[in-house]
Amino acid sequence: MKNILITGGAGFIGSHLVDHLLEEGEWAVTVVDDFNDFYAPEIKRNNVRAHEKNSGYNLIEADIRAQSSLAQVFNQTQFDAIVHLAARAGVRPSLKDPQLYTETNINGTLNLLEQARQHSVKKFVFGSSSSVYGINAKVPFSEEDPIRQPISPYATTKAAGELLCHTYSHLYDLASVCLRFFTVYGARQRPDLAIHKFVRLISQGKPIPVFGDGRTRRDYTYIDDIIAGVRAAIDFDQTNYEVINLGESRTVELRELIALLEQQIGHKAIIDSQPVQPGDVPQTFADITKARHLLGYDPQTQIEDGIRRFVEWFQGSEDNRS
């Protein structure tokens, strides 16, 4: 059995990764999550309920900002790999509390890299974000594009995390892969994110907030495709440091997304038009050439099918019925 640490493993992406690794049966999975109140902690507790029945699973409630707590985790287990997904997430909330985002996303990442160095961990996979590209006029977004102009504290913290991973890879031979996720959606998606929020509000007959004219475009990526990319990154050993986009490589206009949701739910959306929000980018669009080449990444789920699956999950989940 190989030992792996997944930070943020009770969250949306993390809990799906745990599903996958436990199903493989070759991993002893340790999850660190602080169950903070960014959204209802009970949602995360539901995410891990099935995992806790598995003998290969160990859940530790800890904050990655607390060096002493992390030291205890690493003293208990010699990890073969770390997948670091824990973070304060979201562009708009980061404008309200940039200090918290810096402490968690930068200092917390540094704390984990230090523990990895001290305990000779061989592999570090970092969950980054497409937001690091900022307002990038060139599309699709390539890993070679400069990221010197982020437009939110969240984006800045993710870019800083990538640089820290590079530093530890260079200085201490810690093999690191930084994965830039593009607008991930699917079952268990955070309730504050657009698709989940829109489905909930449309289903309740309530207005949905639309910022700007509805022409913003996003590269929506289904959770199963993201997990396939993360899993491949864990095994990747060709180089000591890489930054890799994980997206669908297709952009969808917000108005088109809303129309797809209306079609699947069977109700028209009530639009609450709002001004463009600071920190929001007009579009995201992943060039996944590198992911295809290095990871064998091949996203399978088009937005039409992904939305259908999400709505089916939403309508069948007890958590979403209230």
Rank of each mutant, 00 (worst) to 15 (best):
K197F: 11
G14P: 08
A66M: 09
D287P: 06
V276M: 10
I64F: 01
V32G: 03
V125R: 07
R217C: 11
T301C: 13
V18L: 08
L17D: 01
L174D: 13
V243R: 08
D280F: 09
P98A: 07
T104R: 04
L174W: 10
R309G: 12
M1I: 12
T156V: 01
R180K: 08
E144T: 02
G316C: 11
L112K: 04
D33V: 03
I43G: 10
K138A: 02
Q277L: 10
R88A: 10
S15D: 07
Q72D: 13
E242C: 14
E26S: 11
I147S: 00
F182P: 00
F236C: 14
E61W: 00
V125F: 07
I265D: 03
S69L: 02
P98T: 03
T216E: 13
Q315V: 12
G212P: 10
T157D: 00
Y39W: 13
G296R: 02
V91S: 07
Q99F: 05
E162L: 08
A28R: 10
I135C: 01
R200P: 13
Q115E: 15
Q78L: 08
N107M: 02
K197R: 15
D305F: 11
K2H: 12
R45I: 04
R148S: 02
W27C: 03
N75Y: 05
E103N: 05
Q283L: 07
T216N: 14
Q238Y: 11
Q99K: 08
H16T: 05
Y297I: 09
S176D: 10
F310R: 13
P191E: 11
R292C: 11
W313R: 14
V199Q: 10
D305P: 12
R45H: 08
T7C: 09
V184C: 15
A137W: 01
D224N: 12
T7V: 09
A232G: 11
D298M: 12
P209G: 07
H84N: 11
K158T: 02
Y57L: 11
P146E: 00
E253Y: 13
E318R: 12
T102H: 05
V48D: 04
D319Q: 15
V48I: 13
E144F: 01
E304H: 15
E144H: 04
A269P: 04
V132P: 00
Q283D: 06
P299V: 06
A87H: 06
Q149I: 00
E248M: 13
A269K: 06
N75H: 12
H84Q: 07
K158G: 01
L17I: 03
N107E: 03
D19E: 08
S273C: 00
F198A: 15
V276A: 09
A86H: 01
R292P: 09
R309Y: 15
I64W: 01
A81N: 02
F141T: 00
H170E: 11
G161L: 04
Y101E: 03
T104K: 00
I106F: 01
G127P: 08
F35E: 06
T77G: 02
E23N: 11
E143C: 03
F35L: 15
E242M: 12
S128K: 01
Y172P: 07
K53L: 09
H51T: 06
E242P: 12
A286C: 02
H20V: 08
